[in-house]
Design a protein around this nucleic acid. Structure first.
Lengths: 161, 161
DNA sequence: TGATATTGATAGGTATGCATACTATAAGCA
DNA sequence: TGCTTATAGTATGCATACCTATCAATATCA
C-alpha cells in the first residue's frame, strides 16, 4: 500500500469519485435529476443571477467550453433561462427559473448534509482542518488550474450589489 | 466567498483540476504523452504486472468500463501489452512493455516531485496532515465510490509474491 | 451434470473537462 | 475612423467516468 495509493493526486481523484458518487446517490434518493456540476452552477446563479456564461464559468472555475453544455442541459430541464445580453450581443445572460429556484429550495439542505458525509471518516475537528487546508491549497494552486477561479470578477459582482 | 466555495465537494473538485493541470504541464515539459489516469495504471502495472483488466481497475479504483479505453490508448502507444489469459479466456492480461518501463523510469522522479506542487500552498507539516486526512477519508468513503478500491485483491496479489 | 449465478470485457449512451479553432462582437488605440 | 486586440460563445475532438445492457466464459450448487 505505497506509491500511487499515497500520492496526493490519486487521493484527490478518489475523494472526487466518492463525492460525485454520494451526490448521485442523494439525487436518486430525492428523485431529482441533477449532477454535481449542474448543482454548482445553479448554486452560483442563486446568488448572482443574470450573469453571462463566461462570468458564471469564472465564478466556479469551469472551462468556458464546458459551461455551454452544462447550461444547455439545465435549460432543457427548465431550470435556467438563457437570453442574449442587451448591452453585449456576444454574451448570454443566464438566470434561474422559478422551477430552478424551487428545485434548489428542495435540495439545498440535503446537499449541505451530504457534504459532511464525504468526510465521514474524519472527526469533526479533522473535517474542519481538512476543509481549511483544502481551501488554502486551492487558493494557492488556483493559477495552476486550466480554468482558474476569477476572484476579481466575484468581488466586483459582490460589490455591485 | 461562502456556500459552494467552501463545500468539501467543490474544493475537492478544484484540487482535482489543479492536480490534473499540473500533471499535464509536466508531461508537456518532459515531452511525454501521458494522462494522470494512464500514469496510475502504468504505475500499478510496474508493481503487479500481468494482471487482468478487472484486477487493474480494482487496484486503482477505476470503473471496469473505463479501464478498457485507457488500456486501448496505452496499447496504441506501445506502453503495454494485452493478451488473453491462458487459464481464463474471458480475461485479458495486461503488462508493461520495455518501452513502457523506460517511460516510467524517465518520469517517475518528476511525477513524484510534481505531487508536492499540488499542495504547494501548504507548509510541510500541513501537507503531511492533509495527505493523512485524505487517506483516512478515502479509506472510509471507499465503499461509497462507484468503483471502490479492492483491498483484498491487492493483499492477495501482494501475498502471492 | 444441468441450471443458475458470477465474472471479464465490450458496446452504446450521457456528462464532464479541456484543447483548438472559428465566428461575432466589442474595445482600444493610432 | 480603421486596424488590432480582446472577449463571448460555439463546434469539434479526445479522454475520462460511469450507467445499463449484453455476450462469453467460468464457477457454484442443487
Amino acid at each position: 500500500m505505497h506509491t500511487i495509493h499515497s500520492m496526493p493526486g490519486h487521493l484527490i481523484r478518489r475523494l472526487n469519485q466518492i463525492a460525485a458518487s454520494l451526490f448521485q446517490d442523494l439525487m436518486v434518493d430525492l428523485g431529482e435529476d441533477l449532477t454535481p456540476v449542474q448543482y454548482a452552477a445553479m448554486a452560483i446563479l442563486a446568488e448572482e443571477s443574470d450573469i453571462d456564461q463566461a462570468t458564471l464559468a469564472a465564478l466556479i472555475a469551469y472551462d468556458r467550453a464546458t459551461i455551454g453544455g452544462v447550461i444547455d442541459r439545465l435549460e432543457a430541464k427548465g431550470f435556467v433561462d438563457r437570453r442574449i445580453a442587451p448591452d453585449d450581443r456576444r454574451a448570454r445572460r443566464v438566470a434561474l427559473t422559478a422551477e430552478g429556484r424551487a428545485l434548489l429550495a428542495r435540495i439545498d439542505a440535503p446537499v449541505a448534509a451530504m457534504q459532511e458525509r464525504i468526510l465521514s471518516g474524519l472527526t469533526e475537528d479533522e473535517q474542519t482542518v481538512f476543509i481549511a487546508l483544502a481551501a488554502k491549497a486551492t487558493a494557492a494552486g488556483n493559477a495552476s488550474s486550466r480554468a482558474p477561479l476569477d476572484f476579481e470578477r466575484l468581488q466586483s459582482l459582490r460589490a455591485r450589489q
